[in-house]
Design a protein around this nucleic acid. Structure first.
Lengths: 120, 120
DNA sequence: TATACCGGTATACTTTAGTATAGTGATTAC
DNA sequence: GTAATCACTATACTAAAGTATACCGGTATA
């Protein structure tokens, strides 16, 4: 668990702060990462399943983004030695907890819409 | 205030959910918006002050990003009729509350680093 | 008169992100 | 034998984001 006191500490140290924000931005970055994470939030999926569920994504992008997410510890890739091979992608613990970030983003987005619309 | 119950409602309606996330992504989007918001969090600033405080930003980008932030209701731009004119940029209420989002991003980033480093 | 500050804009360029399209080898279904 | 599925990869392209450089009119300072 990250405690409040720790957050306060970090906010005093811009280096760590910036690192932590960047880690989070990396997950968000690009057109397809959030759709992929969203889709995987309903359970593990195979490559083609993801491709079908995410409209308009090309295999090139899906492959690239999954690799990014994998090296950054957001998803795991499991190859099953079946014939033909099946490959399953699943959210890690971090990947799942990313929902907390999304929740706050939604909350802020809603509040912002209210503030903003009120002003015109 | 956005209430928990409202968040639950929204999570059932993908349309609103996606809109709200997108509103938030728009604020984050691009290389310079977070530095600008961060800088303005310490108080209102003039154009050149921002340019000096944010290393390597060009006037073109600063101008463009400030416009984006303004039309999206994150900063206000105030022209004072002094001679020569001074222009001040300041965070709106929404702009200030964006810190809540950043806090959660930092928290997640820290936790993720812990999870991730533990795994190797 | 020359220089610098203010708040930018204009133009051209490079770099990065994303798209389009085709193809791989192994396997199974008709 | 032909076509389709699986999980991708390769190549070439377009579009978007960001950079570099120069410049604007107005004012103040030396």
């Amino acid at each position: 668990m990250v405690k409040i006191s720790e957050l306060e500490q970090v906010k005093k140290c811009s280096g760590t702060y910036v690192l932590a924000v960047n880690d989070t931005l990396n997950v968000i970055h690009g057109k397809w990462k959030l759709p992929i994470i969203g889709s995987l939030h309903f359970g593990k999926k195979r490559f083609k399943e993801l491709a079908r569920e995410i409209p308009k994504i090309t295999p090139r992008m899906l492959s690239k983004e999954l690799k990014d997410l994998e090296v950054n510890g957001i998803v795991t890739r499991t190859v099953h030695g079946t014939i033909p091979v099946t490959v399953e992608y699943e959210l890690t613990k971090s990947g799942e907890s990313f929902n907390d970030v999304l929740d706050v983003m939604v909350k802020w987005g809603l509040q912002h819409r209210k503030n903003f619309m009120g002003k015109r």
